[in-house]
């Protein structure tokens, strides 16, 4: 009986998480278009629903009913596999991510995470690395020059930015003496990590921008020179898979930044429910992503590589050494 309840709880949590992750791109696309509009003195979507609130639903219906086109010369198996490979890892990662300690419903304590892994951070980086396969396969299988160029760029970008990203979190792990995300948040109960690790936060956030392929690092889907990058040839629901994956990664990077550097659900000054604090912080970083997108121009390809290897990598390594020396002293 105990086992059945625990199992049922896990299944429910996973289903709830998947539902949230699948539905969250709807308000996010709306928000992105609204913010874009107002930053450019436009209004953004206004026609469907109140202030265009139902616009993402209309877009979703449109994508569902559109022709699912596969190019004649495409590698059909890889072409169909790629969107799933791009979509699954960002969803899988959320298994290891805690959203709070626990809440009590009907007298039973329910933990706000699916699993408390002791190597959660490692798991996150290992699984998110798989996502690049979706991009590579998608670009390669479409048999289009734009898509191949886009996926080559993505490939190089992901590989070179995952290294400083991984190095940047080592400082956090050293401070918390644990790789469990839950322990990392608990270690920040008094002072947030961003105070001790400003450089680590900077490197992690910039590398996260690149990882999510957002402006100023969105070379993989540079509209101006590549059409749409690796998903140029995709249409209909397969294209929607890539979009959902992109937003899930934006969300993931925001959640990771909050957990690793901004104290997770630990609040300051204002006593709010921990979950609300967490959501507010994540919302701020999601907004920051959108804000960046409509402020900065795109980096050139060699600049992107130079920032990754010549700035972020030395910075993150120096961060590790300095943190180690200070902790040892």
């Amino acid at each position: 009986m105990e086992l059945a309840v625990a199992l049922g709880l896990i299944v429910f949590k996973v289903a709830f998480l998947i539902a949230i992750l699948l539905l969250l791109p709807l308000p996010l696309t709306w928000l992105e278009r609204k913010v874009a509009g107002h930053m450019q003195q436009r209004m953004g979507p206004m026609r469907v629903g109140w202030h265009g609130l139902l616009q993402p639903v209309a877009d979703g219906i449109k994508l569902l009913t559109k022709e699912d086109h596969i190019p004649a010369e495409a590698d059909r198996f890889l072409f169909k596999l790629a969107p799933i490979l791009a979509l699954a890892p960002p969803f899988l990662v959320f298994v290891a991510i805690p959203f709070g300690e626990s809440i009590s419903v009907l007298g039973t304590e329910i933990t706000l995470y699916v699993s408390n892994m002791n190597v959660a951070l490692l798991f996150v980086f290992a699984v998110i690395g798989i996502e690049v396969y979706g991009v590579i396969f998608g670009g390669w299988a479409a048999n289009s020059k734009y898509a191949v160029l886009g996926s080559l760029r993505t490939c190089a970008q992901m590989i070179s930015y995952e290294i400083p990203m991984g190095f940047a979190v080592i400082g956090v792990v050293m401070l918390a003496q644990s790789m469990s995300l839950l322990d990392i948040v608990r270690a920040q109960a008094d002072v947030w990590n961003v105070v001790y690790q400003p450089v680590g936060f900077f490197v992690f956030f910039v590398a996260g921008l690149a990882e999510a392929q957002r402006i100023p690092f969105d070379l993989a889907e540079a509209e101006g020179d590549l059409g749409a990058g690796f998903h140029t040839e995709y249409s209909g629901i397969r294209f929607a898979f890539f979009m959902v994956s992109e937003y899930a990664i934006v969300l993931l990077v925001s959640v990771l930044v909050v957990i690793l550097f901004f104290g997770g659900w630990n609040g300051v000054l204002v006593p709010l429910p921990p979950l609300l604090w967490f959501v507010l912080k994540v919302a701020f970083f999601v907004y920051l992503f959108i804000w960046f997108r409509f402020t900065f121009p795109r980096y050139r390809y060699d600049q992107l590589m130079a920032i990754g290897w010549k700035v972020l990598l030395p910075l993150s390594m120096a961060n590790i050494i300095i943190t180690g020396v200070l902790l040892g002293a």
Binding site: G37, H38, M39, Q40, Q41, R42, M43, W291, F292, T295
Partner: peptide, 19 residues
């Protein structure tokens, strides 16, 4: 310069749309 740019777009976000 990046901070200036961000401040500018943030200010524009609360300006009245010309639509």
């Amino acid at each position: 310069d990046l901070a200036n740019g961000l401040a500018l777009t943030f200010g524009y976000m609360f300006s009245r749309p010309v639509t």
